[in-house]
Computed example of a mutant assay.
Amino acid sequence: MLPQLLEKISRARVLVVGDAMLDRYWYGDVERISPEAPVPVVAVKEEKDLPGGAANVARSVRALGAQCTLFSISGDDREADSLERLLAAEDIRCHLERDKLLNTIVKLRVISKHLHQQMLRVDFDCPASKDARVKLLDNYLKHLPEYDAVIVSDYGKGGLGYIQEMIQAAHAAGRPVVVDPKGDDYSGYRGANLITPNRKEFEQVAGRFRDNADLERRAMKLVQDLDLGGVLVTRGEDGMSLVQRDGKVLHIRARAREVFDVTGAGDTVIAAIGCAWAVGSGLEDAVHLANVAAGIVVGKLGAATASPAEILNELGKEG
């Protein structure tokens, strides 16, 4: 079933809306401690920019073969230029609501090449203005009919002030919506077809669970309270747990990997489900695809993606 699903995904049109950011990496050598304070001195030798946040979700969608467009808010600056250029290089359409009063969100990581270790992360955050959020909503409503499915990638940066309006509009247009949530209040995601919190995010809202039965009970309460189609809890090395509105439950083991780097794994999961739904897949097949794709991504270092060829190769090992 999954090979046929992958083939269909090449015809999918997926809209990603959320908090896009620029992931900036400075690589260098650490050879001494600063005389000014007891901290290492990193002599930067290399710089690299990558799309981050919702933009990385868009990368994951495109890597799976679907057409993808990203809607987000940014500053009117060089970082926004860089983000647009990076996405265009991967054939991803990008509609940034540029606000001259904002700075584009940047996560700067300083990494020691010699120690293979992240030494420091510096976040440049800037809350979006109401005007920018309204323009984003208007643009979303205008273009929504052009797409088969919607992915909402909420990184809690304030760029999504009208998620309820987006979900309701998608339902009115007959488009499924999958949400990667943030924060301790999920009421804004009411009515979504699926939300995909990781374990920590889920427990922040639903409380700590003792075992699978406890998880299922807490997830079903969330489904009922928020009128959701389902909850998919991604659990790292413990796999994934899906609880659906009709009472169906699915626990999937994580795929064994020598490297287990969860960076970007959640982006891959939501991208795979959005792509699968865009071509009419059932949720359980979509989740199985997401599990295979996430297994590939956690076997790589950094924010990686999974291609159809890699997924087919992985499925071939099962044959």
Rank of each mutant, 00 (worst) to 15 (best):
L2F: 03
L2Y: 00
L2N: 05
E7I: 01
K8D: 07
I9C: 01
I9P: 00
S10A: 14
R13F: 01
V14W: 02
A20T: 05
A20I: 00
D23Q: 07
V30D: 11
S34D: 06
P35Y: 13
E36V: 05
P38M: 05
V39L: 12
V41T: 06
E47Q: 15
E47F: 11
D49G: 04
V57H: 06
R59M: 14
R59Y: 04
R59D: 02
A66C: 09
F71I: 15
G75N: 04
S82C: 15
D91Y: 11
E97D: 09
R98Q: 11
D99I: 00
L102P: 02
N103Y: 11
V106L: 09
Q118Y: 12
V122H: 11
C126W: 08
P127V: 13
S129G: 13
R133H: 01
V134P: 03
K135Y: 08
N139C: 14
Y140F: 15
L141H: 09
L141E: 15
L141D: 05
K142G: 10
H143W: 05
H143Y: 09
Y155R: 12
G156T: 05
K157S: 06
I163A: 10
H171A: 11
A172H: 10
A172S: 13
V178Q: 03
V179A: 05
D185N: 14
Y186N: 04
L194Q: 02
I195E: 00
T196Y: 01
P197M: 08
R199S: 03
R199G: 11
E201M: 04
E203V: 04
V205W: 08
V205T: 11
F209H: 15
R210A: 15
A213Y: 10
A213F: 07
D214C: 05
L215F: 10
E216Q: 15
R217Y: 09
A219N: 06
K221L: 07
V223T: 06
L228Y: 02
G229R: 05
G239P: 08
L250K: 11
R255M: 14
E258S: 14
F260I: 09
T263G: 08
T263M: 03
A265N: 00
G266D: 02
D267P: 07
D267C: 12
V269G: 11
I273G: 00
G274N: 02
A278W: 01
S281Y: 06
E284N: 12
A293M: 07
V297R: 02
V297F: 01
G299M: 05
L301I: 14
T305E: 06
S307G: 10
A309R: 13
E310V: 01
L312N: 07
E314F: 04
G316Q: 12
E318I: 08
